[in-house]
Design a protein around this nucleic acid. Structure first.
Lengths: 263, 263
DNA sequence: ACCCCAAAAATAATCGATTAGCGTTCCGGC
DNA sequence: GCCGGAACGCTAATCGATTATTTTTGGGGT
């Protein structure tokens, strides 16, 4: 029983050495990607047996994967109450944004202060990758998000604090989830691209911490605002819909539902 | 098959509604406490079957608990490689300390700015509980750490950012682990007690953010320094010991090893 | 009609047996 | 003696059956 790695969708910013050699981790990674990248709607109930059937693996494997995700906060759970994809809310997004700004500017400041030549190189590299990915429209789905994430992380990487970086990674991923949940994200890409360039110049070329932090904060804030606007516009669109407390049964997204095995 | 709650050691700052109704969570919580509170040495290998035997529960239950802890970072694991209590290091402690100072002062500043009457009340309450716990020497083990943690968290609680608070909680717990790992912690308690009072006065009574942050930073830094000093002194004590790569098999601490069931 | 309780159905949790993978040891070739 | 690889033992991973718990359903009773 081997797992074909090509079957597994690529996930960005994954645990460093985390190669996927067990069914449990495979399920975990796929589900994680599906939640983070918006293929699984918030609030969706995940029944262990259903997921197990979808993936063609045993209950235990799924259970463990779900348990991990719950610990991470991507799923919510209570004993004997099953698992459910974590909810999203405007308040959460706003808080997430503010916290990210606080921590990311802090880290950026340190990185600019401490960063050596190799840091500059890595950031430049990430920046160029981002630019080229943005130019070539064909760069598909997650690839695009990966280079974006890598650019942001490369910028702060030289801050010298593993704990700060770990925290930032988590926050960034969560924010990514909101971004990917919004279909109109691509619409605001235009401005964003320019901000990335400004950010790169201020941080690496000019080494102006104040300026770089300001750009970063603005960049983050604007993205969130655009997200919220889009979401409100969308909510206004579907007026008739009553506030149905119980959602209809939902199925896993294509990516997640794809069978795992090569049997 | 019921779980007797009195058998479960109290854990501080636990998931809000997280009552412990399943064997898995019971194992999870006990183990978590044992790691956080230093009953389980860093690097200890945790074999699923051994733990299962100790607790008299099945493999799966233990596996899931361990998986959760691994996701949290309290255990490290790789597929097919088992679980091991996360290592500790001087660098990690220093980084943890600095990050805590950064985030906790940020949160404290916001709390002082935003905190209302009920915040002041809660902090005062926590402070008084801390004082009385410190005076009565008989206040046993974890009770003492709980009131300490509660005081620190109460201070920043009014910052208004769940994400920041969640992050701080995690960092605080990790730092707590280092504190509890050090047997000589009680020695430095004297100074610390006074700092708590200063902190309380500056933050709540005077509402002087700068001053309060300074005290908090100093308090945190001093504690870490004392910890490191103690650890170095201890390391100097046992000179002969070669850097044994492989530790002898270790058993669970009393608390952790205690059977779970009332069978 | 509404509410409360009991039985039934659904599904979460637990279990121990089974299978697979890693690490080590032991053997033979160099 | 040293190296490489097959065989073994230990433990991690997986499985599906079993047990416990929650949720739903279906009747009374008010």
């Amino acid at each position: 029983m081997k797992i074909d790695p090509t079957e597994l969708p690529q996930l960005p910013m994954q645990t460093v050495g985390g190669s996927t050699k067990s069914l449990t981790s495979a399920v975990y990674h796929i589900l994680r990607g599906s939640i983070l990248y918006g293929h699984l709607e918030p609030e969706t109930k995940l029944t262990v047996s259903h997921v197990a059937t979808q993936f063609r693996v045993s209950l235990s494997a799924v259970r463990e994967a779900l348990a991990r995700l719950a610990t991470e906060g991507l799923l919510v759970t209570a004993d004997h109450r099953g698992f459910r994809v974590a909810a999203v809310s405007k308040e959460d997004l706003l808080d997430l944004t503010q916290t990210r700004i606080d921590l990311e500017t802090l880290a950026l400041r340190r990185a600019i202060e401490k960063g050596d030549k190799s840091w500059e190189d890595r950031v430049r590299e990430a920046f160029e990758a981002l630019q080229s990915a943005e130019r070539t429209a064909r760069s598909l789905g997650q690839r695009r998000y990966m280079v974006h994430a890598e650019f942001h992380m490369a910028l702060v990487e030289a801050c010298g604090s593993p704990w700060l970086l770990r925290t930032l990674t988590m926050l960034f991923e969560r924010a990514e989830r909101y971004r990917l949940l919004s279909v109109t994200y691509s619409k605001i890409r235009g401005e964003v691209e320019h901000e990335h360039e400004e950010l790169y110049k201020a941080a690496v070329l000019e080494r102006d911490a104040d300026k770089a932090c300001e750009i970063l904060a603005k960049h983050t804030r604007l993205t969130t605002e655009a997200l919220l606007e889009a979401s409100e516009r969308r909510a206004a669109g579907r007026t008739a819909k009553p506030p149905s407390v119980r959602k209809p049964p939902q199925r896993l997204a294509k990516t997640a539902a794809r069978s795992l095995r090569t049997r």
